[in-house]
Design a binder for these strands. Structure first.
Length: 563
DNA sequence: ACACGGTCGAAAT
DNA sequence: TCGACCGTGT
């Protein structure tokens, strides 16, 4: 994971820190690393999906650390991984195969009665599932902890947040185990934080500015640093045989230009260099520089840095390797935890916690036979559904649900035990419909429409909507980018292909000018035109989103007030 | 000096 | 599973 040997190489630059250094500041957390560690204490219970408290041990682990940060007056901002981007798909499938093998072995040990051996194997097979993340999200909501689900890589989202001013929702440091964060340009990362809050910090400016530390980066900048990282081997591209972090550093220091480095490698390594290495290399670099992230203020996807026109051209306008595009309202639904980013399906169980301000209409509680449930669950309005069936994902989601938005009370329902109680009360008091049915029907209109959108576009996949319990633990993790790619290709008819999300307004948001933006003027003007289209189309969504913000719980409200 | 393959112990309670 | 560490080969 991450950049091969980068942390070892940067050892001279790591400094022990305690998180109290960041008292009063906002600090980002890579949710995956803590989820993964937390899962060790309950790996078997998670896999067997056994009843009882122990299965939820990983939540306790996570919240302990959150409370540690809070105790030190730090505002934690938890960032989750979203969908996987195409370049990474290969690695993930491999990992899944190995996990599966370990799980099967573990089950055999268990049958033999060897519990200890089984646990050991279950631990090797640990995987962080969407449902685990989702349960954690609900806990974070109830504890008023800020969080966001990245459209793709959490690392990229964290780097983006690191580039914002604190008053605009930015963060001052990131807690993670992943060296990729440095390649993404995070100015300061805390690695290996223990339960007392001790960790090892790398501050990228210190790396670039230090005059007497051994591997010298004095003439480096962010771009050269990324080149070095990709040369050394990253998750998106393995290194050329014989090239490790040290050689990568030497080559980049010497030539200070990646094209020269690549041509030198071609002549010295010859056949060892794959034919498409240069292209793959540039794609990998582009992921680190221009990754797709979610802009909370604008409620849509953007690129971390604007894509210069020439770069876009060099890829032939094809930038799906940064992750397929997603409509603003879907991106928002993902970021806020309403939509599973890998399956693009609504989280039905949790959404059923939705508290309606007014009594639900009879239509919403229409009783349905079980076999009917998939259809009816996602169809509150037959007319809308019909349109979806015809147009599939062709329509941007906001168009479809905009008229419904006024009814949606809040996207940020709090899932504490208290609200659970409220829900039960309201269910039984406002209607006489059995709770079982209510649980199925009582969910967010918005998310329902969104999932309907997805559902109808996937009808040809002939795939059943699976409930969370079915999906866990047997279901293959569907990180397959093709689903989403499909969505996108249908959608592109309404959106321009040469799209850049970042407008001029963004520039004041950037805390650091390390993001050397050297876009040509003409590419910029062209993009502004594209942005007009974008802005025009987002307006509706924005207005409706504002309307729904009335009932948001204070922390989230404060967050938005700050921006 | 470096890359790279192998082994070992730690992740949690 | 993943990093840290070590021996070997280039």
């Amino acid at each position: 994971m991450g950049i091969k040997d980068l942390l070892r190489f940067l050892k001279p630059y790591t400094e022990p820190v305690h998180i109290r250094m960041y008292a009063g500041k906002r600090v980002g957390i890579d949710a995956y690393s803590w989820l993964h560690k937390g899962a060790y204490s309950c790996s078997m219970e998670l896999y067997l999906n056994s009843e009882g408290e122990k299965k939820l041990q990983y939540i306790n682990y996570f919240m302990h650390r959150i409370n540690l940060l809070k105790h030190h007056k730090i505002t934690p901002v938890v960032v989750f991984d979203g969908g996987s981007i195409p370049c990474k798909a290969g690695t993930e499938n491999e990992r899944y195969r190995k996990r599966k093998a370990n799980n099967e072995m573990a089950l055999e040990k268990l049958k033999e009665g060897n519990v200890g051996g089984a646990v050991e194997l279950f631990q090797r097979a640990i995987s962080v599932t969407p449902s685990m993340a989702h349960l954690l999200i609900q806990t974070l909501k109830s504890e008023n902890v800020e969080f966001v689900i990245a459209p793709y890589e959490a690392d990229a989202q964290l780097a983006y947040l690191s580039s914002l001013r604190e008053e605009h929702g930015g963060i001052m440091a990131v807690i993670s185990e992943d060296s990729d964060l440095l390649a993404y340009g995070c100015p300061s990362v805390i690695f290996k934080m223990d339960k007392f809050g001790n960790g090892e910090e790398i501050i990228i400016d210190k790396v670039f500015n230090s005059t007497n530390t051994k591997p010298s980066f004095q003439n480096f900048n962010n771009s050269l640093f990324i080149d070095m990282c990709v040369l050394a081997g990253c998750d998106f591209l393995p290194s050329i045989p014989g090239i490790g972090i040290a050689k990568a550093h030497a080559l980049v220091s010497k030539y200070r230009n990646i094209d020269r480095v690549l041509s030198v490698l071609k002549t010295t390594k010859g056949k060892q260099v794959p034919d498409d290495y240069a292209r793959s290399f540039k794609e990998a670099v582009a992921v680190f520089q221009h990754a797709t992230i979610y802009n909370r203020k604008r409620k849509k996807l953007e690129h971390m840095r604007e894509l210069p026109g020439e770069l876009l051209e060099s890829f032939g306008g094809e930038i799906d390797f940064l992750g397929p595009d997603i409509t603003p309202s879907m991106a928002t639904a993902i970021a806020e935890g309403h939509l599973d980013p890998s399956t693009m399906e609504a989280y039905e169980c949790s959404l059923s916690h939705k508290v309606f301000g007014s009594a639900p209409t009879s239509e919403q509680y229409e009783v349905s036979a079980p076999e009917d449930i998939v259809e009816s669950r996602f169809a509150s309005s037959k007319q809308t559904r019909k349109r979806n069936m015809q147009g599939a994902a062709k329509y941007p989601a906001f168009e479809i649900h905009s008229d419904k938005d006024k009814q949606v009370q809040s996207c940020f329902t709090v899932y504490s035990s208290q609200s659970m109680k409220e829900r039960k009360d309201s269910n039984t008091s406002t209607t006489g419909v059995p709770r079982q049915v209510l649980k199925e029907r009582n969910f967010s209109d918005e998310a329902a429409t969104l999932s309907k959108l997805v559902l109808t576009s996937e009808v040809d996949n002939d795939e059943e909507i699976s409930t969370i319990s079915e999906e866990f633990p047997v279901k293959t993790p569907d990180n397959n980018p093709f689903r989403k790619r499909k969505l996108r290709s249908e959608k592109t008819e309404t959106t321009p292909t040469t799209k850049s999300y970042v407008t001029e307004d963004d520039q004041f948001e950037l805390r650091r000018q390390t993001l050397d933006s050297q876009e040509s003027v003409n590419s910029k003007t062209q993009k502004l035109d594209d942005n007009k289209v974008q802005l025009k189309s987002t307006k509706k969504g924005k207005i409706s989103n504002c309307k729904s913000s009335g009932n948001r719980k204070s922390s989230i409200l404060n967050f938005f007030a700050r921006i």
